[in-house]
């Protein structure tokens, strides 16, 4: 990817609002370690997704800063995959501390890990190709959707 800052922020929100929402809907019924009603699990999952989006805007600022040290001002494909580690850890820690607003109760690590990993890999695959099928100018405009 060769994003601009605006492109990063737009892509992050767009992806979570589309691919993220769909993949979450698909994965929730098969998540391990869940307790309570499906409605409750869905609510929790979407709150986590929202948290990833909000925190993600901050992360994008950090990535953009780091990218400035690269001559090509690019963001290699593998970075988009590996950033699952810091981002996932931060969300998990906040979740574990009960600091994600609205989440009704404790969430098992296995539940979180499967959901987060599934959505992350899905959106990473989507952004590395299929997004261009719909938005042919996306890659030529630094990842801006609009």
């Amino acid at each position: 990817m060769i994003p601009t800052l605006a492109g990063r922020l737009q892509t992050r929100i767009f992806l979570l609002a589309t691919v993220g929402v769909v993949l979450t809907a698909l994965v929730v019924p098969v998540l391990p370690g869940t307790t309570g009603s499906p409605a409750r699990t869905y609510a929790t999952a979407y709150l986590i997704l929202l948290a990833v989006a909000v925190l993600g805007l901050g992360w994008e600022l950090v990535y953009h800063l780091l990218m400035q040290f690269r001559w090509d001002k690019d963001w290699p494909t593998i970075f988009g995959l590996l950033t699952i580690v810091p981002e996932g850890l931060l969300v998990w820690v906040l979740l574990d501390l009960g600091m994600i607003p609205g989440v009704p109760g404790p969430v098992a690590f296995s539940t979180f890990a499967v959901m987060f990993g599934f959505v992350w890999i899905g959106q990473w695959l989507f952004v590395n190709g299929p997004i261009r099928v719909f938005f042919v100018q996306w890659r030529l405009r630094g990842g801006r959707v609009v």
């Binding site: 990817m1 060769i2 994003p3 601009t4 492109g7 990218m67 001559w71 090509d72 001002k73 690019d74 890659r139 030529l140 405009r141 630094g142 990842g143």
Partner: peptide, 16 residues
């Protein structure tokens, strides 16, 4: 340099 311009000149920050 990998390409004829830094990669972002093709569609990223440098292009902007």
């Amino acid at each position: 340099q990998a390409f004829t311009f830094p990669k972002s000149a093709f569609g990223g920050q440098l292009k902007a």
